[in-house]
């Protein structure tokens, strides 16, 4: 049974229309027009227990809105949403006891107190039995290497240390689902690496379902086998990361290096994009085309020295996708 199910979920915000200039601002005091912004537009998906899912999209795509609906903060305008078998907004408190939430840009720790005090408060709020709390605290402190600063006030911690503490706090009560909204934002390379490895381990070892929104594709590559990609509130892609390239029509690049320039080459299976004489760059026409297909078509009459197949990296795939959208006249 799915741990999360979204069927045609929509969220519409009513926003005042801004009028330009001082006169417009004064006019808007007396008569205000509103516009409806559909932040989430008919999104459907299901997530099984133990999955790690990356929720990806540009700014304003509706990622945070979807997370807020799944955690019960916002009420969907339409559609049905079920988390752990319940409607999150109408069972917000019950739901909250079984989920953990980390906001990358909003701390849940008490700023002036040592990290341990925030953890201890959560022990009472989540009604965590003392032995389980002690065990989880020891395990998380060790895994996230927090021993050196757990008794220091939060205000004295670096961003990376704080984020590790936020994640540990969200896991103290053994939530069934961990929601993370941009958990690596602003972290340095080392801190990001620690957080990613830890989350992947929590998902793998403890079976905690992870839903993660991010701008950083490396987060998804290292933590989430499955990717849900949204834009303008709509679902663009839902599947395994490895299938994203073909789904978005991105093609692999093949470089053929010859001992001497073989002259112009035309192939049915690949499209020539750059000709440097002895080095020629092709785009493969389909995901099914293999190097063998190309080499078979090329034949043996050339002085072929080297063959190199380049998979477009995921960041490039998505960048190209959004660039094409802008060129087509649709703002991403």
């Amino acid at each position: 049974m799915a741990i999360i199910s979204a069927q045609g979920v929509e969220k519409t915000f009513r926003q005042p229309k801004r009028q330009s200039g001082l006169a417009g601002a004064i006019r808007s005091l007396f008569s205000r027009d509103y516009t409806e912004v559909r932040a989430v537009n008919g999104i459907s998906f299901t997530i099984q227990p133990g999955e790690a899912v990356g929720y990806l999209g540009p700014n304003g795509a509706g990622k945070s809105t979807m997370i807020k609906m799944m955690t019960g903060i916002l009420v969907p305008t339409a559609g049905t949403l079920s988390v752990l078998g319940r409607e999150p907004h109408s069972n917000r408190i019950t739901n909250a006891a079984e989920i953990g939430v980390v906001f990358g840009q909003r701390s849940q720790l008490w700023w002036d107190l040592p990290v341990r005090d925030s953890f201890d408060l959560n022990r009472h709020i989540y009604d965590i039995p003392t032995p389980r709390f002690a065990e989880n605290l020891t395990r998380l402190t060790t895994m996230l290497d927090m021993g050196g600063y757990i008794d220091r006030p939060v205000r004295q911690l670096s961003l990376g240390q704080r984020m590790r503490a936020e994640i540990a706090m969200a896991l103290l009560h053994d939530p069934k689902i961990l929601f993370l909204d941009e958990p690596t934002i602003g972290l340095d390379v080392v801190a990001k690496d620690v957080v990613r490895k830890f989350l992947a381990e929590v998902n793998r070892e403890r079976g905690t379902t992870i839903i993660l929104t991010t701008h950083d594709l490396v987060d998804i590559e290292e933590i989430c086998p499955r990717l849900i990609m949204v834009d303008d509130g709509k679902l663009l892609f839902d599947g395994e990361l490895k299938h994203l390239r073909s789904a978005l029509g991105s093609r692999r690049r093949l470089k053929l290096e010859f001992g001497t320039d073989p002259g112009p080459i035309t192939l049915k299976t690949a499209h020539l994009v750059t000709d440097e004489g002895a080095a020629k760059h092709f785009l493969l026409d389909s995901e099914q085309t293999s190097i063998l297909d190309v080499l078979t078509e090329l034949g043996s009459g050339h002085d072929l020295k080297d063959v190199k197949l380049e998979e477009p990296d995921i960041e490039e795939v998505i960048r190209t996708f959004y660039k094409n959208k802008v060129q087509a006249g649709v703002a991403p």
């Binding site: 917000r92 909250a96 006891a97 939430v101 840009q105 909003r106 849940q108 709020i125 989540y126």
Partner: peptide
Amino acid sequence: RIGTMDAILVKPVS
């Protein structure tokens, strides 16, 4: 305004 209300709304308490 800064979103800390969201963090309160995900606590299992009134």
